[in-house]
Nucleic acid binder design. Structure first.
Lengths: 292, 292
DNA sequence: CTGAAAGCGCTAACAC
DNA sequence: GTGTTAGCGCTTTCAG
């Protein structure tokens, strides 16, 4: 088997590299990737980077690992633009999430700016006055977060409003503890928000936990919208209004493009593939049984 | 790199095989396994079986895949005792979760019977009268579930009570929808339960969702205890009382034993390693701020 | 159509 | 200590 790979010059395996496995968004996405790859006879090999830039770089820069897998689907976290360019060009690569591409790889994700804008407009249209955003990352590796912040601002502009800068909170990651802590901070403000746009459902879950344990009601006192549409948000109390990316399509598209790259003698042009998303309204903005 | 493996007869990789990646219990455990393996210079290769017995069998029976990885940490779901015995004995193997071993592999987990008994006794000691159990699996591959049911019965016996058979509900898996559905069923009974022992936190989350959307209060009307201590249960509303297995120890022990097996010229005796667990009391049985 | 030989890229053991 | 060769287990090619 191993010898066969050596002889054939291919392994029949593709690697999927994600920052964290315990993030539901990734594990749900992985499911779909594994299934999509399996129908094409490919096995999937998963690697977790912990968001470590060194580890991430090694994966795409080090040509020696080639042959262990025929291609990589990669969701980078701590990698800047340059590291992506200084990669081993021979390794077929598809990037997940929004990234500017240099044309040597494909890249699939939803339109984060538009989605974030839509989420924020929903909050504005609910009549909320002081809308917070949790999850900004104003530094080089926070490209994805910054796109959401841009959407947040655009929504305000589109409705003739000005976002309150002190209500845009940065967090190191997009997880529950981050969300809970950011919400604590927001509630300690002189004028706390009456709505929050969270950059992930995990952040929203953490924020809601803080709100409820402080005795506030969701959505009556504070409306919350999340991002990712993970299963947790469909069973939480309250359920979470969220941006739902079409994970199935992201996964199948990524696999499809990667296999095409693998089998293609001459590398195809790098594409920006955009999967659809939708806003799903649930209790955290609509309340128990009175949507709208 | 690939050639090196061929020449050396080892790959420096271990495989971890789990049924579902999107089950938080597994993804949290995987994190620890990956880290433990990494400090020993091993890379981790993850595979998801979807609980498919065929796929599971192939992994341990098919010697041809040997050399792709030096050993396997395996959490079987649809595999019966026989399949585990008819395996390729040359492949170093460690099984996760409770399983009777034939001595050719190690096997690490917590004491499910004792833990389940403890969880149930907690409910009894709260003064609950009609205690349900959600998650039994009364068939060949449901060994783990059955141990929890045994603990449930033992707790009743220890307190001089008789479990109500109609309150022991079977579910195909241990996830949120299963829990939600089982709870619907229980609430439609003439005499619904006033407490529930769920065989996973996911089941508990689903059950709580059903309770709350039916207008019942947790824990006032129905107390709920879960199993696994996943992060969700620490941020849900209410937070979940649960059996907390020492995942870190399970992971490090599994890796340690596997590496020992890999490096050992003569296979060590198969051990039954038991990791500690504890009952963590939270809001779903203790209420908001009045523990006990 | 079946069978032997060369070689995938690297390591280990050996000789120089 | 450095240089060379056999060979890991399979595939592929070429000759029989």
């Amino acid at each position: 088997m191993l010898a066969r790979n050596l002889a054939q010059g291919r392994s029949g395996q593709i690697a999927v590299v994600v920052p964290y496995l315990d993030t539901p968004y990734f594990s749900e996405l992985l499911q779909s990737v594994i299934r999509a790859a399996r129908v094409s006879g490919y096995n999937v090999l998963i690697d977790q980077t912990d968001g470590d830039p060194e580890h991430e770089r090694a994966f795409i820069a080090d040509g020696s690992r080639r042959l262990l897998f025929d291609g990589v689907i990669f969701s980078p976290l701590g990698l800047d633009q340059q590291a992506l360019t200084n990669r081993d060009r021979r390794l077929p690569l598809v990037i997940l999430g929004e990234r500017s591409s240099d044309g040597s790889f494909d890249h699939v994700g939803i339109d984060d700016v538009a989605a974030s804008r839509q989420a924020t407009e929903h909050l504005i249209d609910l009549g909320r006055q002081r809308i917070a955003a949790i999850g900004d990352q104003p530094y080089a590796t926070g490209e994805a977060a910054q796109r959401r912040t841009r959407g947040f601002r655009e929504a305000h502009a589109a409705r003739g409003r000005t976002p309150r800068e002190d209500l845009i909170i940065s967090t190191p990651r997009f997880n529950r503890p981050d969300g809970a802590q950011a919400m604590e901070h927001l509630l300690d403000l002189a004028e706390p928000p009456d709505a929050v746009f969270c950059y992930s459902d995990l952040v929203a879950l953490g924020a809601i936990r803080t709100l409820l344990s402080r005795g506030l009601r969701v959505p009556e006192d504070v409306a919350v919208v999340g991002y990712d549409d993970i299963e947790d948000g469909r069973f939480s109390n309250p359920t979470i209004t969220t941006i739902s990316p079409d994970k199935e399509m992201i996964a199948t598209t990524a696999v499809e493009r990667l296999l095409l790259r693998i089998s293609s003698p001459t590398p195809p042009a790098g594409l920006e593939l955009r999967a659809p998303h939708k806003l799903i309204i649930r209790e955290s903005t609509a309340g128990r049984s009175t949507p709208g």
